[in-house]
Write a protein that binds this DNA or RNA. Structure first.
Lengths: 226, 226
DNA sequence: CTCATAGTTCGATTACCATCGAACGATGAA
DNA sequence: TTCATCGTTCGATGGTAATCGAACTATGAG
């Protein structure tokens, strides 16, 4: 037995406020520099450097150096999934010094979850795909149906390039705010990218908020209703 | 922003080896006493008591006093899901001082995940239900199809009593060992209970292992193949 | 080369917390 | 009531780790 120590090490990494702040900042999917993360966490640069080294050693962060900058990002969407899971727990168990700030409704409405869309609109997207049988359960994992493939192609996404990636195409991710599933995986990422490309929405700088334009949201909802 | 501190508090609770051992012990779904948990964690009683108080205050554990015993259990399957998620991360990021012990294959084969079946057989169950369209995606959540309802009834489970419970009937839970989904939720719990009832399998005392009898596993696989 | 920015390393400080022994309630058994 | 068991509370101890200032390295700009 004794699986305890293994998960304890990881959990302890997340268990420091400064590191937790860094990780949640990286939930935006962007790669950030050590200085940015230090500011985000509210600690000095030496402290941040130490924390980042530990997170990288623990396998939660990957580093990429570009010139004199070092960019950090989460090593995978599974890290993001665990973090969102913890947020869900925090919401339920009432660690709620949450006290809904002004940005909170926007976060609930549409936000980025590592690299895909979450929040009400993310859940709505998932629901729509499931309702119209564009997505189905096959062999225990989510799969696009032939109809789903057409839908994706019509939306302007070429499946071939992303299907060869190692990561699973479709994956569900439990939503922190809505407690429902939304679409993750390579397809989830591609859909969000396309939404940006169509200028239906853009990222609110420095936050996880995805801000849809009125017209963009209308078109998005139309896409789901079809 | 600053969702960090909230999840940091929770993660820090899991981040202590002694507490992590207690939590993983409770993943078996059983309610354990303070003394048992102290032994499981390898600490003295006073230490355990302090840890348990913190876990309860953090909303991860619920207490039930019976006579001079105090039984602790996880407050919900979402706690179990986060713990399994952490195990999955630990497996991937290679915190593997795992060094597969003798009990490990049995754990991978069939184990209990809070109150439902996980491991290879758990994944196989989920796959079979999905392949035969007994389970489908509806409105973004897993749902039993009419055919699925028949299947469950034929297996000897009355849906009416469990359908009225607050918890969702079907839920998927990402498997730590197989990295695939297995069936959680009230239905997952009912299925496992029925498996015990039919004496196809029994719990290995003091572990999370679900030990199928040769005959029980045969019948189980027959059920999946049908 | 010189300067500025980005980041790390080192050392010292500090604060927190896990741990245990001992004493103290609380429940049940004889 | 008396005793044993289960558990908590208290106080003291020790170790760990977060933090920062200062010094050091590395990259890029002029």
């Amino acid at each position: 037995m004794k699986a305890g120590p293994q998960i304890a090490g990881l959990a302890a990494l997340v268990g420091d406020p400064a590191r937790a702040n860094m990780l949640t900042a990286l939930l935006s999917g962007a790669a950030l520099t050590a200085s940015e993360l230090a500011a985000e966490a509210g600690v000095g640069l030496p402290t941040a450097s130490s924390h980042l080294a530990k997170l990288a050693a623990g396998g939660l962060l990957a580093v990429e150096k570009q010139g004199r900058h070092r960019y950090f990002r989460l090593t995978g969407s599974d890290v993001a999934a665990v973090l969102e899971g913890l947020m869900g727990l925090a919401a339920r168990t009432g660690q709620l010094r949450t006290r809904p700030g002004p940005k909170d409704p926007a976060l609930r409405h549409a936000r980025v979850c590592y690299d895909h869309l979450a929040g009400e609109l993310g859940v709505a997207l998932f629901d729509s795909l499931a309702r119209r049988r564009l997505l189905e359960l096959g062999e225990g994992e989510l799969r696009l149906t032939p109809k789903g493939r057409h839908f994706v192609a019509d939306f302007g996404i070429a499946l071939a390039p992303i299907a060869v990636l190692q990561r699973p195409l479709c994956r569900s991710c439990l939503d922190w705010s809505a407690r429902r599933s939304h679409l993750a995986g390579a397809l989830g990422a591609a859909l969000l990218a396309r939404i940006y490309e169509l200028k239906w929405a853009r990222r609110e700088p420095g936050t996880r908020i995805v801000r849809f334009s009125p017209r963009g949201e209308e078109q998005f909802r139309h896409l789901l209703a079809a």
